[in-house]
Amino acid sequence: MSDAFFQPGRTYTDANGYTAPEITYYFHVEHVARHPEHGHLRATGWSKTGAMGSRWHGDSRVEGEQDGWTELPVPLIDVDPVVVRRFDCSIEPALEDEHPELMVCCVAEDGRPVALLLDMEARDKLAGLLDMGKGTGDGEPTPAAGIGDERALLLADHILNTGGTWTSGRAHRWLSEDAGIAVTARHVRRMLKSLAAYGYLTEHDKPGRVSYTPRYATGGGR
């Protein structure tokens, strides 16, 4: 989702410094969704004018209508952040697509499903937060920004959807042979440990054998 379009939790205005308050509009965005058939984005939220006593009313804008709107430094409506926990992840439309998007599927505290749709810039930021796109200082080259994160999350997506017990050998074979991704066995071991550390997998460390199983949200087991 591009920052060029309206973003949830933000307030926008069409004021240019010369318009009168009664014809100045404010648009606060609650949700942004993509049309399931036509593919365009639609922002839904609340609008009002700058006239004294003006009240908020439901409103929406579609892709192409964002021109002329400017984001306010501070939203006019207080936004309570939605606290979520990760449940699944997916790369859409496909890893080899020119502009793939990472979708992190989550569950809110009240059970509502939440999908975090991340574009390239946001995915790279996530890679930095998870420390999956950086070298570890043990001699292996540092992956390009975002690439390590993409490989690890692709692996997590496959394990979460496939289920079962996974060793580093099984994960390495799937990445190399089925996904066609060149990666060393040592890096796969680090990927699995990182995915376990950040809640995607559960690590089972037994003498002579380390394995992993998917960690699903309550009620989300396969």
Rank of each mutant, 00 (worst) to 15 (best):
S2W: 04
D3L: 12
Y12P: 00
Y12T: 02
N16A: 09
G17P: 03
T19C: 08
E22H: 13
V29C: 05
V29A: 04
E37W: 09
A43T: 02
T44A: 11
W46D: 01
K48G: 00
G50P: 02
G53Q: 10
R55W: 04
D59K: 08
S60P: 00
R61F: 12
R61S: 03
V62W: 04
E65G: 01
D67H: 12
G68D: 07
G68S: 08
W69I: 02
W69H: 04
T70F: 10
I77Q: 10
V84H: 02
I91Y: 02
I91S: 01
I91L: 15
E92I: 09
P93E: 08
A94C: 07
D97A: 15
H99L: 13
M103A: 13
V104S: 03
V104R: 02
V104I: 15
C105R: 14
V107M: 10
A115S: 13
D119T: 04
D119R: 09
A122V: 03
R123S: 15
K125G: 03
L130Q: 07
G133F: 00
G135K: 04
T136Q: 12
P143C: 06
A144C: 04
A144V: 13
G146Y: 01
I147C: 00
I147S: 09
G148P: 00
A152R: 03
D157R: 15
T162I: 06
R170S: 10
H172L: 12
H172S: 13
W174F: 15
L175S: 02
D178G: 01
G180D: 05
I181N: 01
T184E: 10
H187G: 01
M191Q: 14
L192C: 06
L192E: 02
A196Q: 06
Y198H: 15
G208P: 06
S211V: 05
Y212A: 01
Y212F: 15
G220F: 14
R222S: 08
